[in-house]
């Protein structure tokens, strides 16, 4: 959390999101045993995760490209 208080300028967002992703996958891979368990469990979960990231990113980006 200390990161919040150090001014690293334009790097802030990527670093923050990078840390988020790292932490996310640490929990999924180790705490939730995806790394050690049968691959199928992970695949089923990643399909959902991937679809979510894809469709919602695409939907939000159409609001950005909105050109009248």
């Amino acid at each position: 959390m200390a990161v919040s208080y150090i001014d690293i300028g334009p790097l802030f967002l990527p670093v923050l999101l990078g840390l988020m992703v790292v932490k996310f996958f640490m929990v999924v891979l180790y705490f939730m045993h995806i790394k050690f368990d049968n691959k199928l469990f992970g695949r089923l979960f990643y399909i959902g995760l991937g679809l979510a990231v894809f469709v919602y990113a695409a939907a939000l980006s159409t609001f950005q490209f909105f050109a009248g």
Binding site: F65, F66, G68
Partner: peptide, 10 residues
């Protein structure tokens, strides 16, 4: 949603 006002790129 082609008529709903998405931009031409979308």
């Amino acid at each position: 949603m082609f008529a709903s006002g998405l931009g031409p790129v979308s």
